[in-house]
């Protein structure tokens, strides 16, 4: 598999959290606005690219028995780096995202890609896979975030999109709106896949 193919797979074939049903928690929790989706998506992308690259680099050195433990240390280190950088350069965002930044460490996408892909592929391809999946995830988060922000608050990236007469659906930025929005988007994507005749089973 070439690096380019690994990269593009992230955008559709392995698009999280829709095609790869992983990483749901942040997708639900922080998508109250498009901006937060973008921030969280980029943070996850950073961690994914480097964790994939490092895991792939170390794949012959790390003994099988402590594989998962080593992956966790690598991932957690990267997450702490992101936490510190976010505090130093995007302080308000880091306060809004709160505990969901440290929780990137248990985002199943990252451990999943390390185990399923990076531990079996060369460095460059693994990094490309991380970048692809990460950017795919970022786009998904922005889409969910935009939908919820536009309907729930009447703004997009903080700018008003409707006239003064618009009464926001407060429901959309609350928890039920998150589940509903993600579920319906998933349904739309499934319907689209079925039309294109792709065989795709979600369990």
């Amino acid at each position: 598999m070439t690096a380019v193919r690994a990269l593009t797979h992230g955008f559709w074939r392995n698009l999280p959290p829709f095609r790869l049903v992983l990483g749901l928690c942040p997708a639900l929790a922080i998508t109250t606005a498009a901006e937060y989706g973008l921030g969280m998506g980029l943070a996850v992308t950073f961690v994914l690219v480097f964790s994939n690259a490092l895991v792939s680099l170390l794949r012959r050195v790390i003994p099988d028995e402590v594989r998962i433990a080593s992956f966790i240390v690598v991932i957690a280190t990267l997450v702490v780096l992101v936490e510190l950088a976010m505090k130093a350069y995007f302080y308000p965002l880091s306060r809004t995202l709160g505990i969901y930044v440290p929780l990137i460490v248990v985002n199943c996408i990252i451990l999943g890609r390390a185990e399923a892909f990076a531990s079996r592929n060369p460095v460059l391809v693994s990094a490309a896979d991380g970048l692809g999946v990460g950017l795919g995830y970022t786009i998904s988060l922005i889409v969910v975030g935009s939908l919820r922000e536009i309907l729930g608050a009447g703004t997009w990236f903080g700018r008003p999109v409707f006239g003064d007469g618009f009464e926001p659906f407060g429901f959309m930025v609350k928890a039920p709106g998150a589940f509903l929005c993600l579920g319906l988007l998933l349904g739309v994507m499934n319907a689209w896949s079925r039309r294109r005749g792709e065989i795709f089973v979600q369990t």
Binding site: I62, E65, A69, S70, A76
Partner: peptide
């Protein structure tokens, strides 16, 4: 095992 894990830990 111990060596690899500790090395990773120290670097991190």
């Amino acid at each position: 095992l111990v060596l690899v894990l500790s090395l990773i830990g120290v670097i991190s």
